[in-house]
């Protein structure tokens, strides 16, 4: 689908997940999104974002109920209600929201080349300068990840088997410290170099920038827009079907 159509859809779904809607409907949206990911990108891609947000989800599920104690109580210890109907509902709502928004943006980012996303943003009036910043950031962040991996490898080789016992608990955090420092030093060192690289490729010129990639025009754009409109409309209409 055309990124110019995917972008508003992602925004629409984000908004939908934040509307005070019945749980069933939120569940249905999430189901539809998951189905789309499964069919479009495969099962593994469905698990990946889930794994990233899993710790957060767990926290939400564990911590919400004790603070929402209304409704029928399911679990009480002493005089304290730990689990109640309201609590469960609220926890489920938050979890659905979190997962839904994550999925919506995951689909967008995962199925769109960064360059196309920038083109789409620009089609919606994002000024060129901001587009460039977003685009360099979008591409530089994975680069930093690569840098971190390499630094981690370097540390692994140097630390290995110096009689030091394997790190546990807090020690893990402490042993990460030098690595984070080196990534920090390296990235600070790289900032002026990145600026040099950018200027050598013409960043800063005042003339209009062109683009090698173009988003398709004509029939494909029309089809894409129709499909996006249908999905969007369906999602909105569903709100009114569940009074």
């Amino acid at each position: 689908m055309d990124p110019r159509c995917k972008l508003p859809l992602a925004v629409l779904f984000t908004v939908l997940f934040f509307l005070p809607l019945p749980l069933v409907l939120l569940g249905a949206y999430l189901g539809a999104l998951s189905l789309a990911i499964w069919l479009g990108l495969g099962f593994r891609e469905l698990v990946r974002p889930l794994r990233t947000i899993a710790p957060l989800l767990l926290l939400v599920l564990l911590l919400t109920p004790p603070f929402q104690r209304g409704g029928q109580a399911y679990l009480r210890i002493g005089g304290l209600t730990l689990l109640s109907a309201d609590g469960v509902r609220e926890a489920a709502r938050l979890a659905l929201r979190l997962t839904g928004v994550t999925f919506a943006f995951f689909v967008l980012l995962r199925s769109t080349a960064p360059a196309d996303l920038i083109l789409a943003l620009r089609a919606f009036g994002l000024p060129f300068g901001a587009g460039l910043v977003v685009s360099v950031a979008l591409q530089y962040v994975p680069g930093l990840k690569g840098l971190f991996d390499q630094v981690q490898d370097a540390h692994r080789l140097r630390r290995a088997g110096n009689g030091a016992p394997p790190a546990r608990g807090l020690q893990v955090v402490r042993s990460l410290l030098p690595q984070l420092t080196s990534v920090l030093i390296l990235s600070i060192r790289r900032i002026p170099i990145l600026a040099m690289a950018l200027e050598m490729r013409g960043v800063g010129r005042t003339n209009r920038r062109s683009s090698m990639r173009r988003l398709p025009q004509g029939r494909r754009l029309v089809l894409s827009s129709l499909a996006a409109a249908a999905v969007g409309l369906g999602a909105v209409v569903a709100i009114f079907l569940f009074p």
């Binding site: 360059a115 591409q139 530089y140 790289r190 690289a197 950018l198 003339n207």
Partner: peptide, 20 residues
């Protein structure tokens, strides 16, 4: 240190895009 895009062709095209 000089490469900052996510695809080889985008990398080679960048300066030409700057030239418009």
């Amino acid at each position: 240190e000089q490469l900052f895009t996510a695809r080889c062709d985008a990398e080679a095209a960048f300066a030409l895009e700057s030239l418009g």
